[in-house]
């Protein structure tokens, strides 16, 4: 390994370590919240959702190396996918729960 590679190696290595550590911590936190029944019910659900989103971002950032410095195409694709997923999942849940209510 040349010196330059040693430098990028430490960078890359750090990235995986930070990512891994954060991921383990976030998961454990969410697990802890539920097992020890911290917070009232609704707030707890919100909290674990937020933790999940944070963890997803961590995975994207540290394992998949998607960030604002990525190639424009890659970032665009991820953002566009998020939009479509939001429309599909949000729409489906909205429609099905609305239907369910109407039938009550």
């Amino acid at each position: 390994m040349t010196d330059k590679h040693v430098e990028t190696y430490t960078q890359d290595f750090r990235s995986y370590c930070i990512g891994g550590l954060l991921a383990l911590i976030l998961t454990s936190l969410a697990f802890g919240l539920v097992v020890f029944e911290v917070l009232p019910n609704f707030e707890r659900l919100i909290a674990i959702s937020v933790l999940a989103v944070a963890q997803i971002i961590v995975h994207f950032r540290y394992f998949l190396h998607i960030s604002w410095h990525s190639h424009r195409d890659d970032l665009q694709l991820v953002l566009f996918t998020s939009l479509i997923l939001f429309l599909m999942v949000g729409g489906t849940i909205w429609i099905l729960f609305n239907l369910h209510e109407q039938m009550m």
Binding site: T27, A30, V34, N41, R44, L45, I48, A52, F63, L64
Partner: peptide, 25 residues
């Protein structure tokens, strides 16, 4: 590697929205 990391993300969602939500409610 990408495939593997992506499946992790999916699992995080399963763990949260299936298991944790299921038990927390």
């Amino acid at each position: 590697a990408l495939f593997w990391h992506m499946l992790d993300i999916v699992w995080v969602c399963i763990f949260t929205f299936v298991y944790l939500f299921g038990v927390a409610q």
